[in-house]
Amino acid sequence: MEPAAIHEELKSRFGDAVMEFREGNGDPFIVVNGSHLLEIAAYLKEAQGLHFDSLMCLSSVDYGENYAVVYHLYSMQHKRRVVLKVYVEKADPRITSVQSVWKAANWHEREAYDLMGIRFEGHPDLSRILLPEDWPGHPLRKDYVFPEEYDGIPCHRE
């Protein structure tokens, strides 16, 4: 099943929670609504003919006006892939954790939280994974302001 057909199937099942399907220069992707993410994820994993049992990558993007979380899924059985994208608000970036569906999401979500500040609700331990625990802010945000110093060490950046 091609990504376009998967989009059709999801659309018929979840209605408005599944938004547009886009093809561009990179991988084609399906935009879904964050409020129904968990059901859609579980369906993609379990449903006959889909079986997207592997979360290859979970990443986050800062588009300026909002953030996005991107899920690259792979089906070991059918040897095919699909990309989901969820847009989240800039003011209060929150999204459901898919950790209960794909265990691999655990550390990926912590990384996205650490570097982009996206809160994954329902995550068992949403703490920083790379940076020190007391680091100020989330450095991969486009509007990140570097601290003057950290732990007595100057952090000057040009």
Binding site: L130, P139, Y144, F146, I153, P154, H156, R157
Partner: peptide, 13 residues
């Protein structure tokens, strides 16, 4: 050295 996580030289410490 322009990365957010790297100290610009150990002589700062």
């Amino acid at each position: 050295q322009l990365g957010y996580s790297v100290v610009e030289g150990v002589d700062l410490i």
